[in-house]
């Protein structure tokens, strides 16, 4: 049985509004009985990072390039694993500790593909998608620096 190809079209959104991870996962699976596994990752704003008391975060991005970079990452994941659906949402603007920032939901027939593809998309998103975080802490505002560990994580996927 061939699934409706439109259902497999990845959904990529960059938005200020919050998202509901449960609703996104349900939408990804709606009407599908061929999916055996779904991995849904949500990234949240922490109240500690480079400074101990982060009160808020502002996310800037590069409109146009952001969407194409995310689409490129998802296409690469679809080339590596057999996926049945992908949803990526990244928020922009001002966020508070505890707010969800990013959602990556990946559906596949088997769990290994879903786990790995979700991990891969997050690693590549963190090192390749043009988003920048500015943290607002009690000591003042500062731009978050890149982390060496994020690049090490992304390099795991080099063929």
């Amino acid at each position: 049985m061939v699934a409706d190809p439109r259902r497999c079209e990845p959904s990529i959104r960059v938005q200020e509004a919050p998202f509901d991870a449960g609703a996104e996962q349900r939408a990804l699976l709606a009407g599908r009985t061929d999916i055996g596994a779904v991995v849904c990752f949500t990234g949240l704003v922490r109240d500690f990072n480079e400074c101990p008391e982060v009160t808020a975060l502002t996310l800037e991005h590069y409109p146009g390039m952001t969407e194409s970079a995310l689409a490129h990452i998802v296409t690469e994941a679809e080339g590596r694993w057999a996926l049945d659906g992908v949803r990526v949402i990244h928020r922009i603007g001002r966020l508070a500790p505890g707010d969800p920032i990013v959602l990556v939901a990946v559906a596949s027939a088997h769990r290994r593909a879903a786990f790995e593809a979700c991990d891969f998309i997050m690693d590549y998103l963190k090192t390749r998608a043009p988003f920048w975080k500015k943290e607002h802490a009690s000591e003042g505002d500062y731009w978050v620096s890149e982390r060496h560990s994020d690049h090490e994580d992304a390099s795991r996927w080099k063929a």
Partner: peptide
């Protein structure tokens, strides 16, 4: 042409 620092999203 855009110039920017290393990305820090996610």
């Amino acid at each position: 042409v855009a110039f920017f620092p290393p990305v820090t999203g996610g």
